[in-house]
């Protein structure tokens, strides 16, 4: 089985792109499954199921969804292998701009959209910087020049990625993406022993553990204070 990890900001078009890409992959007779990781809520599993795709979902609740991803991905991979999938795609909502679910030597795709603003690429962090493929959606809504400016901003923070423009509504470009998804040489039996591309620090302050009250007395553990003099 192949594994591809797809990540990206909320509503950037991940599900739309994955569904269209699976259409193209199915024409080649491949069996594909999806696992969706999110924080509090998702409907995506229904969308995949409707399209006849085996799907699992995991909600991280109070945890960073990327931390939750690493803690569960091996079990999910074993589920996919048991289902005799040729390809398992993971979709995770990039809610944490600091973490990313990418694993070394496992294809990593970041989906971001043209509407998110020129400065978004430099704000996103490892999820964009260490992806192999960056898919840019919603190009139908903006002019060609704006698409180019946006893509060049992406290229600045991740020059080695393949950048692709895909229309999540019509699927234009998804055929091209599908040719990069399945790789017979990169078959996995297990993820045990593999490594993340980027560290995932967790602050572990009292608020991580459920504290809700405001004030110094309630702050414990790894607490960091703003410097209001320098504004840093």
């Amino acid at each position: 089985m192949n594994l591809v990890t797809v990540s990206g900001p909320p509503s950037s078009g991940k599900t739309s792109v994955i569904l269209k890409t699976i259409d193209a992959l199915k024409q080649r007779g491949l069996k594909i499954g999806v696992v969706k990781f999110d924080c509090l809520y998702t409907d995506d599993d229904t969308l995949y199921r409707k399209a006849g795709i085996p799907v699992k979902k995991g909600l991280s609740g109070a945890m960073c969804p990327d931390h939750y991803f690493v803690s569960n991905i091996e079990e999910v991979a074993q589920w996919g292998i048991g289902e005799e999938l040729d390809l398992l795609i993971s979709e995770s909502a990039g809610l944490c701009n600091r973490c990313s679910p990418y694993i070394k030597e496992i294809k990593a795709v970041c989906v971001i959209d043209n509407l998110s603003g020129v400065n978004t690429p430099k704000k996103i962090g490892p999820m964009l910087k260490s992806a192999d493929i960056v898919v840019i959606t919603k190009g139908d809504i903006v002019s060609q020049a704006e698409r180019e400016v946006f893509a060049s901003k992406v290229n600045l923070v991740n020059p080695s990625a393949i950048i692709m423009h895909i229309n999540g509504l019509t699927g234009q470009g998804s055929f091209e993406l599908s040719t990069l998804f399945h790789d017979e040489k990169n078959v996995i039996d297990t993820l045990v022993g593999r490594e993340l591309r980027f560290t995932m620090p967790s602050a572990l302050c009292s608020y991580c553990l459920g504290e809700t009250r405001i004030g110094e007395n309630f702050q414990m553990g790894n607490v960091r204070k703003m410097n209001l003099e320098t504004g840093q």
């Binding site: 509407l115 020129v118 809504i141 903006v142 002019s143 704006e146």
Partner: peptide
């Protein structure tokens, strides 16, 4: 190619 498409919208704050 440079393309002049039917769509000419802008969303960037510039």
């Amino acid at each position: 190619v440079a393309q002049l498409s039917q769509n000419m919208n802008f969303v960037m704050d510039l």
